[in-house]
Design a protein around this nucleic acid. Structure first.
Length: 496
DNA sequence: GGACGGTGAAACTTCAGGTTGCCTC
DNA sequence: GAAGTTTCACCGTCC
């Protein structure tokens, strides 16, 4: 760790310290999670002001998880000095604590990613926008003016301050001019319709047909011609051919039927015929209710229908290979060997065999993502996961939620398609995923008040299910999970 | 002499966010 | 492309 602070950082630190000196608060926007952590750390090391309330808060933050992660420790040490970092990788309780204690004035500075710019109402006297560039596929690019406005708009607290300050940090004289032109004098960019993204378009077309709002080509065109999407797209003919392409896909996947209209003079079952009727199939309806992108749904179905032998990894990999799971975990140099090994070990269990002939890097990313889920359901701790996979607690939660939704979708699709062999495995997997436990803990974890940590402790002490819990003496239980919890658990079991 | 700790440069890694599902053990 | 993090060689100190 380098304690010497390079010149270019000092102005942000000075601004932060000046804010504290004035007894005001500031938000500092940076472009990455680790940048927000490093920035908060630098400021906290320079800030001398602490107090008892901050100590209490710092301890609370440290002990939110059963075993504190590196991130918890780092955040806790910053908060001890009244400084915090805030991004999507934080545990949700920690995030809430930071927000609440910024509102009540205890925390003076938050270094954050753009999470805080939109949605959350957290005004500050001063907003410092340190990074106006962000990494994209085309390298470092200036962020949109709209985003800049969101961030700058956090400055000034209506009830407390008459003014607010939004400060941009330029890295050079040239950039200073660019920022002035683009953000201060510039206009916000136009808004674009989200429908232009194909997955969204597919989902909407299916949902329109499925709910019966649209049931012919004519109605479909009519509906879309009134949307903002059409207004922006301009070329109506091109849009119509795009829509027909989607309809054909849905038909090929058996999510909708195109039925002939018996009154029509020209009978043909294709989707082009003006008068043919679009009707969602049972499968299509379910997919629409699940909010699944039809493309993903089709992929899942193809996998679920495979008759080859499946294991847990098969399903975890199936859901990792979807648009919804993007972005997949990225691969480090040191990962390759392990991932290749994992791949060859599970080659026979992978359901989407097309992957073997495609982009190998992508294949390995799907393997790594599935591997991450597999480690999670085998009780790898959050700290270890951060270390091994570089996924922070808040991101684990997010990925798990997506996975659970997709597994549930797999379950529902299997039900509609009468693929009964998948059902039990999927239910089991979902439960294990939810708690992050091995199969042996499943019956314990189902009991209220018992999560992954307590379940593991109990199991290792020979208590393996609810019957064991009933039979065990209160004193013994106390020695395992602590006094209060033991009493509460006993109460719960007797009631249930 | 060896263990240990601090240092700094070079190599490596990563890059914001967060929609949507449901009743079953 | 830039910043943050990790790794590693090097050096001085202490026992």
């Amino acid at each position: 760790m380098n304690l010497e602070i390079p010149y270019k950082y000092t102005e942000v630190i000075d601004l932060a310290l000046d804010t504290i000196e004035k007894d005001k608060q500031a938000l500092i926007f940076v472009n990455t999670k680790s940048s927000s952590e490093a920035q908060a750390e630098r400021i906290s090391k320079k800030n001398k002001k602490t107090n008892q309330a901050l100590d209490i808060l710092a301890d609370e933050i440290l002990n939110i998880l059963s075993s504190p992660t590196k991130q918890c420790k780092r955040l806790s040490e910053c908060v001890r000095k009244g400084i915090a970092f805030h991004h999507s990788g934080l545990n949700s309780k920690q995030r809430e604590l930071i927000e609440d204690n910024f509102r009540n004035g205890l925390i003076k500075i938050i270094c954050c990613t753009p999470t805080l710019a939109a949605g959350l109402d957290l005004p500050a006297y001063r907003t410092i926008i340190k990074d106006l560039k962000r990494f994209t596929r085309r390298g470092m690019q200036f962020i949109p003016v709209l985003e800049y406005l969101q961030m700058a708009g956090r400055a000034g607290r209506p009830k407390y301050d008459k003014i607010g300050e939004a400060i941009c940090i330029a890295t050079s004289e040239k950039q200073k001019e660019e920022i002035l032109e683009m953000y201060i004098k510039g206009k916000p960019e136009k808004i674009f319709s989200k429908l232009s993204a194909e997955p969204v378009l597919r989902t909407y077309v299916l949902s329109l047909i499925s709910t019966g709002l649209v049931n012919s080509k004519k109605q479909l065109f009519e509906f879309f011609s009134k949307t903002f999407f059409a207004h922006q797209y301009g070329d109506i003919q091109k849009m119509e051919s795009l829509l027909l392409k989607v309809v054909d896909l849905l038909k090929n996947w058996n999510f909708i039927n195109v039925e002939e209209n018996s009154n029509s003079m020209f009978q043909s079952a294709d989707s082009l015929n003006e008068e043919n009727k679009y009707v969602a199939t049972l499968l299509g309806k379910r997919i629409s209710e699940l909010y699944l992108d039809p493309y993903t749904a089709n992929k899942l179905i193809e996998g679920l229908q495979k008759e080859q032998e499946k294991n847990d990894f098969s399903y975890l990999h199936l859901i990792s290979n979807t648009l919804e799971m993007m972005p997949l975990l990225s691969i480090r140099k040191s990962d390759y060997e392990k991932l290749e090994e994992k791949l060859s070990l599970n080659e026979d269990y992978i359901l989407d065999t097309d992957l073997f002939f495609d982009d190998h890097y992508y294949l390995l990313s799907t393997i790594k993502t599935a591997f991450f889920f597999e480690q999670w359901i085998n009780e790898m701790t959050e700290d270890r996961i951060f270390e091994k996979f570089n996924v922070r607690p808040g991101e684990i939660k997010f990925k798990i939620d997506v996975a659970d939704w997709l597994l549930f979708s797999c379950y529902e699709l299997s039900k509609v398609l009468m693929l009964k062999s998948n059902l039990n495995v999927l239910t089991k997997l979902r439960l294990r995923l939810k708690y992050g436990v091995k199969e042996e803990l499943m019956s314990l974890v189902k009991i209220e008040l018992i999560g992954k940590v307590r379940a593991r402790k109990l199991f290792d002490s020979g208590i393996k299910n609810i019957k064991d819990l009933k039979n065990i003496g209160l004193e013994t239980l106390k020695s395992i999970v602590g006094e209060k919890t033991a009493i509460n658990i006993k109460k719960k079991i007797q009631m249930g």
